[in-house]
Structure formats: C-alpha cells, structure tokens
C-alpha cells in the first residue's frame, strides 16, 4: 500500500453554520492525484481550506479534530497550538478556482513567496522565477514582458502563473480548487498535463466537477457528501 501524506482524524468542520464535515477520518496518498468530487454545495472547496488552515483568515468557521501531514518523514499535527502557519502554508500550496494574480508585475507575482521569505538577491529571484515559469510552460510566452502587470494576461496564462507561484516555495502538498473551471478547453488540457507531471514531487488534491477530467488525471477519487468522505468508484 502507498504511503499516506495527509490524514484527518475525527475532523468536524462547520462554515457559516453549515456542517461540512462530521467526524471524518480519511487518508490521502503521497505522490498521487486525489480527485475530490461531490454534489455542488457540499463544501469541497472549504474542505481544502482546513488542510492549510486558510479558513482561519475568513470569519465564520469552526473546527474540531485533527489533521496530520507527513513532512520529512515525520507526522505533524497542524492544529497543534503554536504550529507555524507560514511554514505550513509554504509546504501546502494552494491554487484557487479563479486565477488570483496580485496586482503587480508578472515577475513580482512569481517572486512573491521568495520576497515573503526575505530573499532580496536579484539573481536568485530571477533564476527561481524563470525556473517556475518554465515548469508551467509559461516562460516562452512572458519572458519579454516580465515587468508587465500580471492582470493583463489571459485567463489561462493567469492560472498557470498562479500555479507557478504556488510551486515556488517547493510545496509538498498542492491543493487545487477547480483549477480549470475558468479556462477554455485548450488551456485546461495544458494545466491537466502539468498536474500529472507534478505528481513526482507533490501530493495533489484536486476539487473537480468534470468527470472526464477526473478520469484522465486522478489516481484516486473520493466523494464528499453529507459531511462524510467516501472512497469513490
């Protein structure tokens, strides 16, 4: 059996008075793509936020239970009091449904996680930005205009930019909330291909509505409904 990367134990989560998970205990396999499906409104996207504690930045959530993630072979209880959130979120990256580039240049967007970590060396930044943009096959398209606003890119380019940005801190887990739903088919395919390639270095959790997409990329499918997480077909 494959090694697990993320484990939830009796996890209950409510958001704005709506019960999303009740006592859910489940595991997610390492270096695999797990697709998260379920009826719309079942809280798939909000569930993702419990794995990097991002729900805490929004009002109206309440949680009990445990989430463990295996970093460097060691199991970390991420809800342990005082657990360093910035480190957690660098290790658990996230890509949102709507591309969310910051209103800065393309370069600064991708370099942003490094700037946060205090990196100021231009050469290092440039090298890492190029590497990340190459990995999402965006480098050729934007290398001439790295200083243009990221908001000027097309939707598909913006989403790949956001994936590149999420990859910069070298996350071990990548959470993706319907990453292709705002893209046209061609751009969506490019992103899918990318995700499959990322499997070697990351554990991926993808919320998806598209069954054919799930079939194409997922190693495992789980369904979230009525507050429980079940193994899909």
């Amino acid at each position: 059996m494959d090694q697990w990367k993320i484990e939830t134990e009796t996890l209950s989560f409510a958001y704005n008075g709506r019960e999303i998970l009740t006592n859910a205990s489940t595991r997610f396999t390492e270096n695999a793509i797990t697709a998260l499906v379920g009826p719309s409104g079942s809280g798939k996207s909000t569930f993702l936020l419990t794995l990097n504690r991002l729900w805490e930045t929004l009002p109206g959530g309440s949680l009990s239970g445990r989430v463990r993630i295996r970093f460097d072979g060691q199991s970390h209880d991420i809800y342990e009091p005082g657990y360093p959130l910035d480190r957690l979120r660098r290790r658990v990256g996230m890509v949102f449904q709507m591309p969310n580039p910051l209103p800065m240049s393309i370069f600064k967007n991708v370099a942003f996680p490094l700037l946060l970590a205090g990196e100021r060396d231009r050469a290092v930044l440039a090298a890492r930005v190029e590497e990340a943009l190459r990995r999402v096959h965006l480098w050729r398209e934007v290398k001439e205009r790295l200083n243009d606003s990221a908001l000027a890119l097309s939707g598909g380019q913006q989403q790949r930019l956001c994936i590149a940005r999420a990859l910069v801190p070298e996350p071990e887990v990548l959470l993706l909330d319907e990453p292709t739903s705002s893209l046209d088919q061609r751009a969506a395919r490019a992103v899918e291909e990318l995700l499959v390639n990322l499997k070697e270095r990351c554990t991926l959790l993808v919320v998806s509505h598209y069954l054919d997409q799930v079939r194409r990329i997922a190693d495992r499918v789980v369904e979230l409904s009525d507050g429980a997480i079940r193994e899909g077909r």
């Binding site: 936020l49 979120r89 946060l116 970590a117 999420a166």
Partner: peptide, 20 residues
C-alpha cells in the same frame, strides 16, 4: 476573500499580508 487568502496561501504572515 480571494485577495485576502492569496498572501497567506503563499506563506505570508499576518503582518506581511497586510503590508504587501
């Protein structure tokens, strides 16, 4: 919320998120 979460999702601390 999308903007609010962008920084923290990349590892920004509360102060960094506010400032940057």
């Amino acid at each position: 919320p999308a903007i609010r979460m962008t920084g923290p999702a990349l590892g920004a601390s509360r102060l960094q998120n506010i400032r940057m």
